[in-house]
Nucleic acid binder design. Sequence first.
DNA 1: TGCAGTCTCGGCT
DNA 2: AGCCGAGACTGCA
Length: 159
Amino acid sequence: MMTNHQMHSILTSWGAIKVEIAPEGVVRCRIPYLREIPKEPFSVVECGSDPYSCYVRSLFEGARPALPPVGMLGGTPFQTTVWKGLMAIPGGETRTYRELADQIGCARSVRAVANACGRNPAPLFVPCHRVIRTDGNPGGFSGGLAWKRLLLAAEQSNR
DNA sequence: TGCAGTCTCGGCT
DNA sequence: AGCCGAGACTGCA
């Protein structure tokens, strides 16, 4: 089947972030997995000027850009519910896995909610990095914790 | 630390 | 269709 999807790539000192765009919006975002925090300080090396690339760059700058259009992400009904909940978290704010579970009406499903966060196909756009554990620890991130810490630090810095 | 409670998902039978 | 194990979790002992 023909994919009229468009690929955008944001080059950073930590690796290339790839964004896949369908006609309705972003459907996938790939972030290189980092086992630990790179010695190299993070920086954006090359970034397009389309709305999606700009959004990503802004995130790392600690800004709170409006979410660009998000397309069909697939997933089970439960996952869809969780991902919608994620997209409702404003930039610069965080929620605990529990708060997120409460908010979407699944108070007892905290563990399941966390799993759904981890399966989100478009991290950064579906801001799963804003969800942390109740005890203050960051929890997990599909691309490795280095990214989550970086993003949270950036968003915290500009308050 | 450890562990039970809780719920979803994917793989197997 | 049913069973089972494994989670980006929590709260309590």
